[in-house]
């Protein structure tokens, strides 16, 4: 019978906390950058300009149809050879996570914007609003409410995906689990502790997404 002992894990708690901090920074950083870049991609898709549309769609498909793990390895090990420069593992990790997030966010934005009835834009146009005013004041406020549950769900996935940066030696929460395991020889406790930490943070967020979705359904 295996005898559990979390004592060594508690001793290593500052490693876990540091790892958690790194995970949070990478998650929020890549969400913010992904939002900005995703919005730009989305506007390219909706611009009506063929070249922009195709370029944005090509980019999206590239990132949606290859595994994030492969993307991370490629950015860290392959791209430097192509460019002839060194890419710091932290830069590679943040860039890859952000671009990956952008590809998915762009699709959420696009769906949300397209779901707003054409009559809304026409009503804005009929009182003399410009395209930009219609987008900012009429379409986006309505679309963002509708996109919120999908956005939170994608961000939950993003938080979990961040664990993959450990393969290029970024010391996030998952990476710290290996470190602590190496020090304590207690894989069961190390990996269980990490799993619990992920769960405790993400469970409330998925509940929040469900709650918002239910409330939106009532109000519409």
């Amino acid at each position: 019978m295996y005898s559990w002992s979390f004592f060594p894990i508690f001793q290593a708690s500052d490693l876990f906390l540091w790892g958690l901090w790194v995970t949070v920074v990478y998650t929020f950083g890549s969400i913010v950058l992904g939002l900005v870049f995703g919005l730009a991609l989305c506007f390219c898709r909706l611009s009506g300009n063929r070249v922009l549309d195709w370029a944005a769609q090509g980019f999206q498909e590239l990132f949606r149809c290859t595994p994030l793990l492969v993307q991370l390895l490629w950015f860290y090990y392959a791209l430097p050879l192509l460019l002839g420069i060194n890419i710091d593992n932290h830069v590679a990790a943040m860039a890859t996570l952000s671009l990956y997030a952008a590809a998915f966010y762009a699709e959420i934005f696009r769906g949300g914007i397209l779901s707003i009835a054409k009559g809304q834009s026409e009503a804005g146009a009929a009182i003399g609003m410009s395209k930009a005013q219609i987008m900012r004041r009429i379409v986006l406020p309505q679309a963002s409410r509708r996109m919120l549950p999908a956005f939170i769900n994608q961000s939950v996935i993003q938080f979990k995906n961040t664990s993959l940066v450990s393969v290029i030696s970024v010391a996030d929460l998952a990476y710290m689990a290996s470190v602590v395991n190496g020090q304590t020889y207690r894989p069961l406790e190390s990996y269980t502790a990490v799993a619990v930490l992920y769960f405790v943070i993400l469970f409330p967020l998925t509940r929040l997404a469900d709650y918002i979705e239910r409330r939106l359904r009532v109000s519409e």
């Binding site: 009835a117 009559g119 809304q120 009503a123 009929a126 309505q142």
Partner: peptide
């Protein structure tokens, strides 16, 4: 833009801004 500032329109399906 100028035309529409001076000529209003009312639609079959109202198209009020729900937000």
């Amino acid at each position: 833009g100028t035309l529409r500032r001076h000529v209003g329109m009312v639609f079959q399906h109202f198209n009020l801004f729900p937000h």
